[in-house]
């Protein structure tokens, strides 16, 4: 579960995040939509403990990330926009390494099972990451989350650069994690994918959460209109 309370981050005079109150419950996928500089990545950085909040608090699984970031990281997995694993190591080795340093020692059978669960083809297990597409790398990233038994998944712009089938496959993977009870927070520009996979959607602008929707209660068209309206975009197509 992810919770933020009045989470605020200032960089000098610039207010990057303004009193964000957010809750992502177990088995929910929360998509944060917003233009560049809206505060999506700052939110993720704060949850990862990469930056300290100016005020407010955030917690992962009830653990305060500002005071106990390392403990909180035991329960979370993170997939950045460009998931760069070690190109000279195979998918198995990358999974073994990241699980190992996170404190999980896995057998070869377990490693293979997690890669397979993440949707990676068997013949790619022993191949070096250097030969992988972005979609394949993300599957390895998901396998790291699975192996870690993460309760929270943070995704920062995961879909750009994915072809439609890879993007769809990625959506299905998130659904599978949702069924396992993982709370997912995804920062994205992709309204279509957000509408497809999310349980909840929030629109951010200038560091503030402007609107929130239950995904099943809003159509794609209404979501797009709401987004453009929030962004003060005047030239929307009819």
């Amino acid at each position: 579960m992810i919770t933020t309370q009045n989470l605020t981050k200032k960089y000098g005079d610039h207010l990057a995040l303004n009193k964000l109150n957010l809750t992502v419950a177990e088995g929910n996928i929360y998509c944060l939509l917003g233009a560049n500089g809206a505060g999506k990545t700052t939110t993720i950085n704060l949850l990862l403990g990469f930056v300290q909040p100016t005020s407010g608090s955030a917690s992962i699984n009830g653990i305060d990330v500002t005071t106990n970031s390392r403990e909180a990281k035991k329960y979370l997995a993170y997939i950045p926009e460009n998931l760069m694993l070690y190109p000279n190591l195979s998918a198995m080795e990358n999974l073994d390494y990241f699980s190992g340093i996170a404190g999980k020692s896995l057998s070869k059978t377990q490693l293979k099972a997690f890669l397979a669960e993440a949707g990676l083809q068997n013949n790619a297990f022993e191949k070096r990451i250097a030969t992988f597409s972005k979609g394949m790398r993300q599957k390895v990233g998901i396998s790291i989350a699975l192996a870690k038994d993460a309760k929270v998944l943070l995704l920062d712009e995961p879909t750009p650069g994915l072809d439609p089938s890879a993007s769809n496959e990625f959506g299905l993977l998130l659904q599978r994690l949702k069924e396992k009870g993982v709370a997912t927070l995804m920062a994205t520009h992709d309204i279509f994918r957000a509408r497809e996979v999310a349980t909840h959607i929030g629109i951010m602008k200038d560091g503030q959460l402007k609107q929130q929707f239950v995904a099943s209660e809003i159509s794609l068209g209404d979501l797009e209109n709401a987004y453009l309206k929030t962004m003060d975009y005047k030239n929307a197509l009819p």
Binding site: F50, Y78, L85, I101, G141
Partner: peptide, 18 residues
């Protein structure tokens, strides 16, 4: 520069130790 540091730092480790 490659981006793998963010993934590493998201693990429960001290980056300076790493």
């Amino acid at each position: 520069e490659s981006g793998s540091l963010r993934l590493l730092a998201a693990q429960p480790i001290r980056i300076e130790n790493w």
